[in-house]
Design a protein around this nucleic acid. Structure first.
Length: 562
RNA sequence: GCGCCUGUAGCUCAGUGGAUAGAGCACCUGCCUACGGAGCAGGGGGUCGUAGGUUCAAAUCCUGCCAGGCGCGCCA
């Protein structure tokens, strides 16, 4: 709805420019490219356009002159615009009639489940792959970051009109897995009282002791037994951790299922037929340099084994065959060298390069006593996702990650995160939601009538009320922006901004009775409750996209003293 | 050496072509008989790493340089 208002303004400006053209004031004709955006400073009005600046620059005229001409050609009276000003170097600032946007709140009230939905995706099928950690240990804090971002991105894309599948790729074969099996074998022997040492490059973490103890005693196991038992245990553990973190995948794709399959062979044959494979020094290479990679990559080693990359090529082909229009991979920073070859493979397979987007989720530095702690899975030194959830809770942890853009390297101080828990911004948002719920409980049967047309919108006249209404109408645009940029943190920031505005508004009721909801005259009360209801709808929707709970009441902390 | 990411307030981070660069935390000053104080009002704090360039307009785009991180395997 906000976008509709924007579009209407855009059209009015275009019409004014048309008029300028026919009067011979400007030479250019449509289409003109200019922006209509809400200005940073709200005192500049509700929308601002740089149309005069852009056109003056092209026509080598004075911007203010063009601006004045545009303004003169805008409709003199309108139910949309209350005021039009020219400011600064030639911005045209527009202040709207409150009724024009207050009216649009009905859209939220009547569609609480779907408000915020935008049709950016047109039902395009997306497979978003994330976490995909090796099944050799518990998930760590880095996986937690990827999980929070990937899951929320999936939620947002769905809201933006995409058909979304979440996928976890399990590297359950290869050298690392062999080491893992041998490490487990050693731990098992240790539980049997035998002396056994974990391979030097193996997995030293104590978690394998727990796994070993779950094995039936006094039995002889083969390495394959240890492998399959260990993998099963690890995957189950990872699933449980992710579920506790609010993340559930539609599919856990096993690499072992892919290798040796018809599809795998078929994909390689296809590349061969296209002439993208060649032998060199006994190995089989993929000509990724034909698609911009630094060097060609091996798909089959001299010893006859396929590389991980070979399986990844087939894996991506499999995604497109399912079918899928767009594959999104979230990778860690240590895999960024992988991007070029994977995109090359996708292109060689006959897909458009833009059908694969690789997002690098940057690293997490764990800070302890103001120094970075090096984490190592093999040595067993890490903060697990389970630890994180136990220490600070799912909501705090998710929000912590979702407040940052994926590309920022972030420092995570667990002590600080714990300390800050009581004042964590996520509680501030949830508290606002709970507070509105509380007001509704007190209002009881006075809760707003189900027919928005009975609400007297003119009762909403306080500046904060108008600001809140405009913010709510911005929500679908925020979703759209998150989906377009693949940057979910914009949503977190929007919710904080909305919350802050609401809390300030609410707090004014302490000193100024005009700001109090309960106790207002009936018509005003209805209008205020109506606004609050719309705020709580958007908060609820936004929180759920972030994977956070929206509590009807907050548990109060015990006071420190008295 | 080459590639990718990052450099914005004391700290953690937003802002990626528009007007006077923002938030949270920390710090300072006020405010608890009020729809729930996990708060509110106000204040101090910035060569946007650096040097050029493009533009009416640059934290934002381009180039060089500096600093930190991560990659550069017939490992995964």
């Amino acid at each position: 709805m906000a976008r509709m208002i924007e579009e209407r303004i855009h059209q009015l400006i275009e019409a004014a420019l048309d008029a300028c053209h026919s009067k011979g004031i400007i030479a250019s004709t449509k289409p003109w490219s200019f922006d209509v955006t809400p200005p940073k400073d709200p005192s500049h009005g509700d929308f601002s356009t740089n149309a005069a600046l852009i056109i003056a620059s092209k026509e080598k005229q004075k911007p203010r002159l063009i601006a004045e001409t545009i303004v003169a050609n805008l409709p003199k009276s309108s139910d949309l615009m209350a005021k039009v000003d020219i400011a600064g170097p030639g911005f045209i600032n527009i202040t709207l009639q409150p009724a024009s946007y207050l009216h649009a709140l009905a859209n939220i009230f009547q569609h609480p489940e779907t408000y915020g939905t935008v049709d950016r995706g047109h039902g395009k099928k997306v497979i978003i792959e994330f976490v995909s950690a090796n099944p050799t240990g518990p998930l760590n804090i880095v996986s937690a970051r990827a999980a929070a971002i990937g899951d929320t991105l999936a939620n947002i894309l769905k809201t933006a009109g995409f058909h979304v599948q979440r996928e976890f790729y399990v590297n359950d074969i290869g050298h690392q897995i062999d080491l893992f099996a041998l490490s487990l074998a050693a731990r098992y022997q240790q539980t049997q009282g035998e002396t056994a040492t974990i391979p030097e490059d193996g997995y030293q973490g104590e978690y394998l002791i727990d796994v070993a103890q779950k094995l039936q005693k006094k039995k002889k196991y083969t390495v394959d037994d240890f492998r399959s038992f260990g993998l099963q245990a690890m995957i189950a553990w990872q699933k449980k951790s992710l579920k506790d973190f609010g993340v559930e995948f539609d599919r856990w794709f096993l690499q072992s299922e892919l290798m040796g399959s018809k599809e795998f062979e078929k994909t390689l044959r296809f590349l061969e037929k296209k002439g993208y494979l060649y032998e060199h020094e006994g190995a089989l290479f993929f000509k990724s340099t034909a698609f911009g990679d630094d060097k060609d990559r091996v798909v089959k080693k001299k010893d006859g084994e396929y590389t991980y990359f070979a399986s990844d090529i087939a894996y991506h082909e499999g995604k497109f065959a399912r079918p899928c229009d767009w594959a999104i991979d979230l990778l860690g920073p240590d895999h960024h060298g992988y991007v070029a070859r994977t995109k090359a493979a996708v292109e060689a397979l006959g897909h458009k390069p833009e059908q694969l987007t690789v997002l690098i989720v940057q690293q997490v530095n764990l800070i302890k006593e103001q120094a970075i702690v090096k984490m190592s899975k093999r040595a067993g030194r890490l903060v697990t996702m389970d630890d994180l959830i136990a220490e600070v809770g799912k909501d705090v942890a998710r929000f912590f990650f979702l407040q940052r853009s994926a590309s920022s390297h972030l420092d995570f101080d667990l002590e600080l995160a714990k300390k800050e828990t009581p004042e964590n911004p996520v509680f501030y948002i949830q508290y606002a939601y709970a507070r509105i719920a509380s007001i509704f409980r007190k209002a009881g049967s006075l809760a707003p009538n189900c027919d928005p047309s009975t609400i007297d919108l003119s009762e909403l006249s306080l500046p904060e009320e108008l600001t809140l209404a405009k913010m709510l109408l911005r929500y679908p645009k925020v979703i759209d922006q998150c989906a377009t940029d693949l940057e979910p943190h914009h949503l977190a920031f929007f919710l904080l901004e909305l919350t802050k505005t609401f809390q300030v508004y609410y707090s004014k009721g302490r000193a100024d009775e005009r700001y109090r909801v309960l106790g207002s005259p009936p018509k005003r009360l209805q209008a205020k409750l109506y606004l609050l209801k719309n705020i709580s709808i958007v908060l609820h929707h936004g929180l759920s996209l972030l994977g956070l709970s929206a509590p009807e009441e907050m548990k109060r902390n015990e006071d420190d003293d008295g």
